[in-house]
Design a protein around this nucleic acid. Structure first.
Lengths: 341, 341
DNA sequence: CTGAAAGCGCTTACAG
DNA sequence: CTGAAAGCGCTTACAG
């Protein structure tokens, strides 16, 4: 660390000009004579001077730093969002700071405090469908934050949230997945993961039910299990479902909330001696990097999260107040098969 | 976004005190009468006032924001470092910004520029062993950065770098891995991944060679393949090695640079009809979340990167100038077996 | 084209 | 215990 930071005053006096002039060459303004510019630039280079972005922020009211709130980076799904957002931010000259999701959880501490004090130029928040009580609290926090900086949402954004957003249409995805499985002849299709209480019209359950209805299949509550999003959760949920049902009622296909849950389901099936995909088709979501290396390779949904992250940054920076839907597509690999008669 | 940010002046005038007094209650100083404190706090709460951290940084010279430079977040290994660092930073009241590794690559643009302008309170840089020319350039960049803020290194830190660090002892890890494999009877042990030109005494190759020497086994250059760190790279490298050798000379065990390369090796083996671990033992490094879900589950090294990330933050904040070594341990799963005679 | 001056929103001695 | 004033390092009108 240098002893004393060098300032615009040092450069000005070294170059024999005013600080206003130094500021002008720093910002590349055109109204500076070539001779002056050269002289000043030379001093800047020689002394290796970097203007303080914080002093700049003080006057210019813009800090060129954005924030993003993600539930947990350890799921590569979120790392993809972050990567896409950060790359775009950098292209546009912004820095991107990552804050943990708990920043929005007032049950831990006041969310606005830390975030609002940093004068960020904008904030991206990755949200999920939540149980109603928690959902309400998050919405309040988001509105609070919005007083201090522009906010763009990404992820599973409830239809009722009035924010600019790049949202997943989970219902449409699920409906398509069910259609895909029924096209393979499946009629006993389980769905594992997520929370029970959410009420959003875009939520996965709506798509699941619509998909079954499309195929004129009954909705069987025993095939719907709720759990959190880790492999262990998925394994436990599937095992419990199988244990609770006579084998002739076992599902022939399981839709997992995400790839992690799907990995857990595949492990549980293996443990039980159930062959995937011969006896049980499994489909995940997120298209994680490891899906092609599972055995069998996991069929999943590519939700193009890097692209979505980048798009969220664009909305944030441009100030456009629109809600967009993220692209997605089914990626067929080896974990789903035609049902055996 | 609010129309106009409210400032300490607004609070002072509302409460009928000076801004100095407001500042005192804001920072919880004790020399304020209880009556005044209450009055001021009430106005603060009512107007939902948040002091600007950037104005604070202007005078106090500390911004409570740290930075971290990581090669790529999409490898969960780096996400673990980040998560550990961020959680620790947050505990200590700091914010953590993530910068891409290319920030250090002068071949793309001037690294110091963006980083130095942000007056961070400190920077963590995750480094790798590099070819000598690139290595030299990175070292120069690091020293440059150090002029502006304290720097702590993490990862594969060359022994010659004179920086505080939480470093991997890759040579020791590799030596232990070779010992483990030779204890299973392996004598033809391949090592795949990394760069050819590095010269560090802590680098993996040193451990690989020492491990072979410990077991009085020959170093066979054909068993050493270099490649980058993705599954595809690993698969290609192993396939090439197998193709270049008569089957009776094929390695019976392969050590992969990291779990991603190991995943690629397992996929390549499967494609070639080589059974893991019966015909080929595979061992990775990093202990990624997906390793237990591979088939067979991948034996790996847990390098405790979350803990290392947290420790790096502690060194950064405390200013201790020491070099520590990250803990690690072998995690046996199913991908290594006793060699068949 | 260039400079003097005010101002951004705080903190920090210094007085009282 | 409280306030007036200087100062942090820049940018931005405003003059010239």
């Amino acid at each position: 660390m240098s002893s004393e930071n060098i300032t615009i005053y040092d450069i000005a006096s070294d170059a024999g000009v005013s600080i206003a002039t130094v500021s002008r060459v720093l910002r590349g303004e055109s109204n500076v004579s070539e001779a002056t510019r050269k002289k000043v630039q030379e001093v800047i280079d020689r002394r290796n001077y970097r203007p303080s972005s914080i002093a700049r922020g003080m006057t210019s009211k813009t800090t060129y730093s954005l924030g993003i709130i993600l539930p947990k980076l350890l799921n590569p799904h979120y790392a993809m969002i972050f990567t896409g957002a950060q790359e775009e931010a950098r292209k546009l000259g912004y820095t991107m700071s990552l804050f943990p999701w708990s920043s929005l959880d007032t049950r831990e501490y006041d969310p606005a405090a830390m975030l609002a004090e940093r004068r960020l130029d904008g904030l991206i928040v990755c949200v999920e469908y939540l149980p109603p009580d928690h959902d309400e609290q998050v919405l309040t926090s988001l509105q609070d934050l919005r007083q201090y900086m522009p906010v763009v949402l990404i992820g599973c954004v409830p239809a009722s949230y009035d924010f600019p957003a790049v949202a997943n249409n989970s219902a449409a995805m699920m409906r398509e997945i069910v259609k895909y499985l029924t096209s393979l002849g499946h009629e006993r299709i389980a769905f594992i993961g997520g929370v029970e209480e959410d009420q959003d019209p875009l939520r996965r359950d709506v798509g699941y039910e619509n998909g079954l209805r499309d195929a004129r299949l009954p909705y069987i509550a025993s095939y719907r299990a709720y759990c959190r999003g880790t492999p262990g959760d998925g394994a436990a949920a599937l095992k419990e479902m199988l244990t609770s049902l006579k084998p002739e009622y076992w599902p022939t296909a399981v839709i997992a909330l995400n790839d992690l849950v799907a990995m857990g389901c595949m492990a549980a099936a293996r443990e039980k001696g159930i062959a995937v995909p011969e006896q049980l088709s499994v489909i995940g979501c997120d298209n994680l990097f490891c899906t092609p290396y599972l055995v069998p390779p996991l069929t999943s949904i590519n939700t193009h999260q890097q692209q979505a992250g980048a798009r969220a940054v664009q909305l944030l920076v441009s100030g456009e107040n629109k809600r967009e839907t993220a692209d997605w597509e089914l990626v067929e690999r080896g974990s789903c098969a035609r049902v055996r008669k």
